[in-house]
Amino acid sequence: MKKLMNDSTKIVSQFLDGLVASHGNLIKRLEGTEVIVRKEMIPNKVGLISGGGSGHEPAHAGYVGTGMLDAAIAGEVFTSPGADQFLAAIQAADQGSGVLLIIKNYNGDVMNAEMAMEMAEAKGIETAMVVVNDDIAVDDVENRRGIAGTVLIHKVAGAKAEQLASLQEVKEVAERAISNVRSMSVALQACTLPSASKPSFSLSDTQMEVGIGIHGEQGMSREDVLTSYEIAELLVSHIEKEVDVTKPVYVLVNGMGSTPLLEQYVFANDTVSILKKNNVHVEKMLVGDYMTSLDMAGISLTLFAIDEELHSLLQSKATTIQWTEVSQ
């Protein structure tokens, strides 16, 4: 697939510059780094950072701003940022009340974030970390990956931090949210890295990959292509087993990069129909590209069981490139 770019080795840096050129009212780039920071910091607020490899846009820089992240690190495509980049983000986000790192469960991200935390602590910055592992396609809970549900953790933790809660309080609400968020994905076509000429794996027109990650990994199984309604039934049936659907749920329908909004809304309608049939109360639907995998054709579904506080935090004011929510 042809790509709109200049030099694949400079694509991340040029992407970040373009992001700032387009949204300089909200964000800026930390000089000499691949870190995007919130333009206006709040004194004494817990700082929130996240990040990982590029290729998942609008994540993670798209969630930097009021009510969400204070800084985001963009590594090379599908490659963890180095500990030095995490440290730069921690230092930029620190406003005197500590910094919480929201990290997806990938070895490189976790390891480099932990190293950066040690360096930050040595400089007198209090830090804490939560690890998001919402992908139920992986049976081993310890090795479950962080995927689109991570965005909802950014929102909840960001809103709590905006209330000037303590680092421990922000961490606790993030952990509670993580325990109630579950996701699963399917792909109809693999993604192609900027430096590659072929997709990361091959699928025929009659096949789909079930349980894919966000780094071009193959899924847990390969199945015959199903209709949108059948895919929604499949994903709901798996996720419902791990979410307390006696509570109201937020539903996140996430495009993987090249799935048209037309198709995403068809899938959203199918999902709501199935959940209503199962007597699940859908508090709100979110539909769009929230955490992608380059140009992958596919969809992910996230269910988030909420309580009163989580609902309030999800609805609180936020203004970022990707997420705008007005207080209700």
Score class of each variant (00 low, 15 high):
Lys3Gly: 01
Lys10Ser: 12
Phe15Ser: 08
Phe15Asp: 01
Ser22Glu: 12
Leu26Asn: 08
Arg29Asn: 10
Ile42Phe: 04
Gly51Met: 05
Ser54Ile: 05
Pro58Asp: 07
Val64Arg: 06
Asp70His: 13
Asp70Phe: 07
Ala83Val: 09
Phe86Asp: 07
Gln95His: 14
Ser97Val: 01
Val99Asp: 00
Leu100Tyr: 05
Leu101Thr: 10
Asn112Leu: 09
Glu114Val: 03
Glu114Tyr: 02
Ala116Trp: 04
Met117Val: 08
Met117Glu: 08
Glu118Phe: 02
Ala120Phe: 06
Ile125Arg: 03
Ile125Trp: 07
Ala128Asn: 11
Val131Asp: 05
Val132Ser: 12
Asp134Cys: 05
Ala137Tyr: 06
Glu142Asp: 14
Gly149Trp: 13
Gly149Tyr: 12
Leu152Ile: 09
His154Tyr: 14
Gly158Arg: 05
Lys160Val: 05
Lys160Asp: 01
Gln163Lys: 02
Leu164Cys: 07
Ser166Ala: 02
Glu169Ser: 02
Ser179Tyr: 00
Ala187Leu: 06
Cys191Leu: 15
Ser195Arg: 10
Ser197Asp: 15
Pro199Ala: 09
Leu203Ser: 07
Leu203Phe: 05
Ser204Met: 07
Ser204Pro: 03
Thr206Ile: 15
Thr206Lys: 14
Ile212Asp: 01
His215Ser: 10
Glu217Met: 03
Ser221Lys: 15
Arg222Ser: 09
Ala232Gly: 04
Ala232Pro: 04
Glu233Phe: 04
Val236Leu: 08
His238Ser: 08
Val245Leu: 13
Thr246Ala: 15
Lys247Asp: 04
Lys247Gln: 15
Val249Ile: 13
Tyr250His: 15
Leu252Pro: 02
Val253Leu: 03
Gly255Glu: 10
Ala268Trp: 01
Val272Gly: 01
Ser273His: 05
Leu275Thr: 05
Lys276Ala: 00
Asn279Thr: 02
Val282His: 02
Glu283Gln: 13
Lys284Cys: 00
Leu286Arg: 01
Leu286Cys: 01
Tyr290Pro: 01
Ser293Ile: 09
Asp295Pro: 06
Leu303Met: 12
Ile306Gln: 02
Leu310Val: 13
His311Ala: 12
His311Trp: 04
Ser312Ile: 05
Leu313Ile: 11
Leu314Thr: 04
Ile321Phe: 07
Trp323Ala: 00
